[in-house]
Design a protein around this nucleic acid. Sequence first.
DNA 1: CGCAGATTTGAGATCTGTCAAGGGATGTGG
DNA 2: CCACATCCCTTGACAGATCTCAAATCTGCG
Lengths: 264, 264
Amino acid sequence: MYKMDQAACKNWRETPLHLRLEKLEFLEEDDFSKLDALLAYREEADPGEWVVQEDQETDRTYVLLNGWMFRFKTFEDGRRQILNFMLPGDIIGLHSLMLRRADYGAEALTPVHMAVFPSSDLVNSLANAPRLLLALSWIAGQSERLLDEHITRVGRRGAVERMAHLLVELYVRMRRIGAELDEARALPLTQEIMADALGMSHVHANRSFRTLCRDGSVAFVDGRPTIIDVIKLAQRGNFEKTYLEQPEVPDDVERASKVLPGTN
Amino acid sequence: MYKMDQAACKNWRETPLHLRLEKLEFLEEDDFSKLDALLAYREEADPGEWVVQEDQETDRTYVLLNGWMFRFKTFEDGRRQILNFMLPGDIIGLHSLMLRRADYGAEALTPVHMAVFPSSDLVNSLANAPRLLLALSWIAGQSERLLDEHITRVGRRGAVERMAHLLVELYVRMRRIGAELDEARALPLTQEIMADALGMSHVHANRSFRTLCRDGSVAFVDGRPTIIDVIKLAQRGNFEKTYLEQPEVPDDVERASKVLPGTN
DNA sequence: CGCAGATTTGAGATCTGTCAAGGGATGTGG
DNA sequence: CCACATCCCTTGACAGATCTCAAATCTGCG
């Protein structure tokens, strides 16, 4: 799903973001055409490339079409904390809409394709597409939940549990956007990346990962951390099924949204 | 500032949220009157009272007018992680707009006054007040930055540094919403609350706090953790000045916002 | 006074970080 | 093809940080 070639997603409505938004029944044809206008311009980046510089002033919003990225913060002394992973269909810098400085960096983890537009464009589209903005706030709400969970993971889970929990989350998110089993199981992560995400040293990340390997829930395949037994991994990580279930849109919101004015 | 009595803030535009939004120059009289309509209904809660139940289905949005609250997650085995602290002017459940279930709880830390409205009301108001929605997304962006910082704090800072950093953040946020020095210095926290926020045991929270006491940067006054020397505390916490500076609204967004349609 | 909740301290067990070294895969240039 | 560099994974040993358990102290309150 997220592997579609560039040509395919450049030409029509096949981006993961589209697929995600199609679940919102109140969106109309008109909203999608406005979205298309926003997503017209595309950029690419290679692994390790910085898309957003830390502390850089920016007014750009990115929609990840293909590949993985992550947001992070670094300290002067070299410490780094990864804030979250961005998968196809995720949006970076929605809030940069109103905040001039990005106090985080964003880096490509794999080769990526992105749609890019200046935040002020969003403001303009927004004027006559309130339903679209609602849809974007839905996306934003989902990623804020992920931040909540990440705080809990880093703050209150032991090292092995923490790693298991993260891997399951990534697996579930990949599956949710339509990735095949094999794609969702083989994660494009190094142990150092996992360590920086989980707030531990890379040495300890290795020990934790090896523990999971001995349990038979994960393994290294072709140089990638790979999930072998999701059930076992989820148990090891105390992963709650309810978390990350496809969020539904409440009926009243659905109803209220349908009467929002369109273009005309 | 956040100590205003209920009568005062019930009758006119003196809530911390109003004061915060007044900094957005593109908002017009009309937007504020729509906001007033949303904020008409008020509720109160006592310390320890749960305002949002974990995993409860909810369609309500809260605007904190007065006092402190926090959001949290708990585990079956009793572990608890505090996700963030809400100060006057903060909004709880903006994203519950589109997500039915709250996967966190929210609890009053002091006696609180809140404005409450059903999320669907927001959708309705939003239809003809795009500027107001922009303003709310500005608020949402700010609190998302706080989550980022909290992840970094919990993931990559040592115990003493972590505590110092949190205390300075709370102090700065209080000052930013207009609290007097004495109000901002005396924090309504117990050591157990700090421990749960910082992802450490309450025993270790005590040891870390005592260390800060010996440094002369904090003390216990009238049963409250109290900041004695902010400068020293900020140094101990590697607190960066740039972080939490009053975010400005980019010029182009400001310009684009001004031409958004008003009521009629 | 006596209770409940919060802080404080000590001691030992456990977890995690740091330092150091080695191995394996991949890619490049000679 | 080899030598070499680089990047990542792996392991051991030890130091340091943090947790748990347990008990003592303090404080506000009825």
